[in-house]
Structure formats: structure tokens, C-alpha cells
């Protein structure tokens, strides 16, 4: 056999081995990796650290690639929030610094202010419970983007829903309504909040506008949950008034929704936004079905 043939045979043997072994080894490695993911979770858990917290230093270090770095930090912020929410760890201490860095690196990245406004201010476990930081972030956004009505809306939203400061909320909506591209309802909203800040209907109006005006899925999901919760609250409030009517008429509270129907005070099978019928609780207080996924923030009338 010639040297050339020997070399060719040796090469073919190596290639054949690679063709068989490489895919098999990849499969074994993938299976092993899945196992390592489970094993390493406790070791790598809660080790999230933000080594460089100085946004201005990062801007200098980015060597002109600050918009790209801003996108990376924005993605990190979203992933951080998502992972923390999934783990139900309840603390989001790095969310504000991550968003602040992204906003400093690219002050025009509007989504940062909106996302931060909602999830920094939201109550735990859904958010960081820090409306003060949310206000600070959105105000920075307004300074950098004074013509963006959306940011005034976000500011008013935090004042209204989290801080219950209706005067400042109305002021923010009003200032936003004066920006060039502001929708007409901003003025209406400013007036409604100033006039009747605490009403459930105003709250629903604000959350529904948030739902309609955003494209961010996580924000939409949160807004929808609140809209559904407020719809349920409004329905329960009305049922409560009906229950009081029943008491005036029969001298006792109804024990079931059927009794209200029999008395002709309500018609049909009333259901909450999740599709569960409303139930009658003790002392004639209507309530949500225990299986319902709808969340409401306040309880109805005390007996």
C-alpha cells in the first residue's frame, strides 16, 4: 500500500470517527448540561451583583458605544425583573440602578422610564414598592425628553395610583396635555383626577389608557390585571348597594346571589372578568369566587 493511500485511509478513519462521535458527544453534553443547570442553581443563586454602578463612568468606558451598552443594560433590567418575578424572591434592589444606567447611557430610550415607572412603583411581589425612585426616574426622562406626553402620563400615573397625590397627578396630566402630540384625553384625565381623584371609575380610566397606549407586553399584562380588578371592584360595589337594598326590604342580609335574583334585584348570572360568578359572603357582602384569578386591592362595604 502506498504512503498516499495510507494517509487517505487514516484521514477517512479520523473523519468517520468525528462524524459518529461528535453528534453523540453533543447529545451527552446537552443532557449533562441540563443536569448541571439544576445542580448549580443553589450555588449561583442570589449572587447577582452590579460591579459598576456609576452610569457616568460606564458612559466614558463605553468608548462611544453608549447606545449599544444602554440596550444591553435595558435587556439586563428586563431579564433581572423577569427572573426575580419568576423566583418570587420579592426584592428588586438592582432594578433601579440597572434602569438608571440604561437611562444615562441613552436618555432617549423611553421604554426605560415607562417600565421603571410601573415596576419600581408597583407593590411587592409584582414590583419594587419604591414609587419615590420611580418618580425620580420618570422626572429624569421628562428633563431629557420634554416633548414626550407619554412620560407626563407615566408621572401622573405614579402620583395617582401609588402615591395617591391627586393634585400632583392632575398637574402632571395637565402639563402632558400641553405637549405637541398629546392626545385630547390627557386634558380630560387631568380634570377628572382633580375633580374626583379617589373614584374607582377614574382609576379604571387611567389603567385602561395605560393598557391601550403601551406596546410593552409586561406593562399591558399588569395594566389588564388592574383593569379587571377594578371592573370587579366596581361590580362588587354595585352588588353591595343591591345587598343593602335587600336588607331594607326584607330586614336581613341575603345569603346567596340567588336570593337577590329571586327578589328581582339583579338579573342573570353575574360573572367577574375571569368568568367566575360573584358569591355572597357573610353579612351580605358580595365577594369574588375563591377560584377566581382576579385580584382586587380594597374590600367593599363593612357590615
Amino acid at each position: 500500500m502506498s504512503t498516499h493511500t495510507l494517509k487517505l485511509t487514516s484521514h477517512l478513519r479520523s473523519v468517520a470517527l468525528a462524524v459518529v462521535a461528535v453528534p453523540l458527544l453533543f447529545v451527552a453534553i446537552a443532557a449533562l448540561q441540563a443536569r448541571i443547570d439544576v445542580l448549580s442553581a443553589p450555588v449561583t443563586q442570589d449572587k447577582e451583583e452590579l460591579l459598576l454602578r456609576s452610569a457616568s463612568l460606564l458612559k466614558k468606558l463605553s468608548l462611544g458605544y453608549d447606545p449599544l451598552l444602554a440596550d444591553i443594560y435595558w435587556t439586563r433590567a428586563v431579564q433581572y425583573y423577569g427572573t426575580r418575578l419568576q423566583n418570587r424572591s420579592g426584592s428588586f434592589e438592582l432594578l433601579a440602578p440597572l434602569l438608571n444606567i440604561a437611562a444615562t447611557l441613552d436618555p432617549k430610550l423611553l421604554i426605560v422610564y415607562q417600565f421603571g415607572g410601573i415596576f419600581l412603583s408597583d407593590h411587592p411581589p409584582g414590583g419594587a414598592g419604591r414609587p419615590d425612585l420611580a418618580v425620580e426616574l420618570v422626572k429624569r426622562g421628562i428633563t431629557a425628553n420634554p416633548n414626550e406626553w407619554r412620560l407626563y402620563y407615566d408621572l401622573g400615573f405614579i402620583y395617582y395610583t401609588r402615591l395617591k397625590d391627586y393634585q400632583k397627578a392632575s398637574q402632571a396630566f395637565l402639563e402632558g396635555s400641553e405637549t405637541p402630540a398629546a392626545p385630547i384625553w390627557m386634558k380630560v384625565m387631568a380634570a377628572r383626577v382633580a375633580e374626583n381623584g379617589e373614584s374607582l371609575e377614574t382609576s379604571r380610566f387611567i389603567w385602561a389608557e395605560l393598557y391601550d397606549s403601551t406596546k410593552d407586553e409586561s406593562v399591558r399584562k399588569t395594566a389588564l390585571e388592574h383593569v379587571q380588578g377594578l371592573d370587579a371592584e366596581i361590580a362588587l360595589k354595585r352588588l353591595n348597594q343591591v345587598s343593602e337594598l335587600y336588607w331594607k326590604k326584607f330586614g336581613r342580609f341575603p345569603t346567596s346571589m340567588q336570593e337577590l335574583r329571586s327578589a328581582g334585584l339583579v338579573q342573570g348570572d353575574l360573572k367577574d372578568p375571569a368568568g367566575y360568578p360573584y358569591a355572597m359572603g357573610p353579612h351580605g357582602i358580595p365577594q369574588l369566587d375563591t377560584h377566581s384569578s382576579v385580584k382586587i386591592e380594597s374590600n367593599q362595604r363593612k357590615p
Binding site: H11, S14, L17, A18, V22, L25, A28, I36, L39
Partner: peptide
Amino acid sequence: PFTLIWHNTLYAALYVILILVAASAVFSG
């Protein structure tokens, strides 16, 4: 955990073998 140590060892060993097999196939040709 010890289980993580030997899993990582096996992972690295398998990956090194895989790369060396591929390298041999390339280099032999």
C-alpha cells in the same frame, strides 16, 4: 456540592474529547 464537581468534570472531559476528535479529523486532512 460534590455532585456538581463531578458533573462539571465529566462535562469538561466530554467537551475536550469532542473538540480533539474534531481537531484530529481536520488536521488529518
